[in-house]
């Protein structure tokens, strides 16, 4: 349609959109490109090389980063799993539990970590652990992560569950299934894309977290984000580019998986 008859199109919007995409991706693309920089200095381009990737795995800082990576991933998996389980239970109670007075407060409590600014949450958690004598370390990180990952796991699960009519479970119960069986054999499989989405979201949020982790981790332990931060504070080194690129790649993979999972509709 020509611009005259088309009431939808505004000149210049397309340009701004392209600008927006460029802005969003430029820094990431630049970092990725420079992670393959063969030269020592990060300012001059010396050709393509994988040296910084090698450095991450075998260089002087590799032990530190590897330990940090192990911490990050293990915490993320455990926290995401716990958070997803708790969120699934809560979603079942809220979406399929009828009307009751605790319902809205429960929803409010679950939304709390998203509504409170992250730094406030970090401070509060630190103070709390200190006041009850919980020594800072791996466990404090794990506990804090599990708590604030719950809302992130919850949202996709609730959305998915709301989209499934309860006629399926009623049909199952009509065919002599108990509530537990109806849940396990009917609702759970149908909800699975939502649960997987929730898990991935919780996983990424835990993996990426910096502020809360930085506050509650104490001195002796590092996760990947805190290790990267510490390294950057000492000066921007090329191997940081390499780690960043790898994490970037991981994020892209996760988004793609989540995207395809959410598109599958197994109720049809």
């Amino acid at each position: 349609m020509s611009a005259k008859t088309d009431v939808k199109t505004y000149a210049g919007f397309r340009l701004i959109t392209i600008l927006c995409v460029v802005i969003l991706y430029a820094p990431l693309v630049v970092v990725t490109v420079y992670s393959f920089n063969a030269s020592e200095s990060i300012t001059n381009w010396g050709g393509v090389s994988l040296r910084w990737y090698v450095d991450i795995f075998t260089g002087p800082e590799s032990a530190k980063f590897q330990q940090a990576a192990i911490n990050s991933f293990s915490i993320a998996i455990i926290a995401a799993t716990l958070a997803t389980g708790i969120a699934t239970a809560a979603a079942t109670a809220i979406v399929r539990g009828g009307k009751y007075r605790l319902r809205t407060p429960s929803l409010g409590l679950i939304s709390l970590p998203i509504m409170v600014p992250e730094i406030v949450l970090a401070v509060a958690t630190l103070i709390f652990f200190n006041s009850i004598g919980f020594t800072r370390g791996y466990m404090t990180i794990l506990v804090a992560h599990t708590a604030f990952c719950i809302p992130f796991a919850y949202l996709p699960i609730q959305a998915r569950m709301q989209g499934i009519e309860d006629t399926y479970e009623h049909a199952a119960m009509d065919l002599y299934a108990t509530k537990a069986q109806a849940f396990r054999r009917i609702l759970l499989p149908l909800m699975m894309p939502g649960i997987i989405s929730g898990f991935l979201l919780a996983f990424i949020v835990s993996l990426d977290d910096f502020i809360i982790t930085n506050f509650v981790k104490g001195a002796g332990i590092e996760t990947l984000p805190t290790a990267i931060f510490g390294s950057v504070k000492q000066g921007l080194k090329p191997n940081i580019m390499a780690i960043s690129t790898m994490l970037l790649g991981l994020s892209v993979v996760m988004v793609t998986i989540s995207y395809f999972v959410s598109k599958s509709d197994n109720t049809k």
Binding site: A87, A89, A90, A93, R96, G97, G98, I110, K179
Partner: peptide
């Protein structure tokens, strides 16, 4: 909140969160 299939178990389900 029209659906109340698991109403009985809701307190147990909410407890962990």
């Amino acid at each position: 909140a029209a659906s109340d299939t698991y109403a009985k178990a809701r307190h147990w389900l909410l407890m962990p969160s």
